[in-house]
Simulated scan of single mutants.
Amino acid sequence: MLINRDLPDLGYRFVGTDNELGGHRAAAHAIARGARSIVVLEEDLPITTIDHRIAGFRRAMAEAGLPVPRGSIMRVPTRRHEHVALPWQPQQAYQVARRMLRRSRLPDAVVVGNDYFALGLYRALEEHGLKVPDDMMVIGFGDHPFSAFLSPPLTTVRLPADEIGTIAVDLLLEEIAGGRNARPLKQLIAPPPWSNAAPRCAPDPPPARPAGRLRRRHAARAPARPAPGRGRSLRAGPRTTARRATRLCARRPRCDSCRCGRSPGR
Rank of each mutant, 00 (worst) to 15 (best):
A219G: 09
A85D: 15
G165Q: 05
S147Q: 07
Q187N: 00
I38Q: 04
F117P: 00
R102D: 13
A236F: 11
N4F: 09
V96E: 05
R53H: 01
H24V: 03
V138W: 09
Q92R: 13
P238M: 05
L10T: 12
M100H: 07
R33K: 03
F117Y: 14
E42M: 02
A124T: 08
V111I: 15
A124M: 04
N19S: 03
A242P: 01
F149W: 08
M136Y: 07
L172S: 00
A202N: 07
I38E: 06
L7G: 02
L185S: 11
P90Q: 09
P210F: 08
R230V: 14
D108C: 05
P90C: 08
I189C: 08
A208R: 15
A62S: 14
R200M: 11
P205R: 13
I139Q: 04
G179K: 00
L125R: 04
F14V: 05
R232T: 13
D6V: 13
L41Y: 00
R247I: 13
P46S: 10
R230N: 07
P206E: 14
I31T: 08
G23D: 00
V157T: 03
G231Y: 06
R243L: 15
P193W: 10
P90A: 12
A227E: 15
P228Q: 06
R25Y: 03
A224P: 07
I139T: 06
I54N: 04
A85L: 14
P226V: 11
A64R: 05
P107Y: 10
V40S: 01
V68W: 12
G165H: 09
R13V: 03
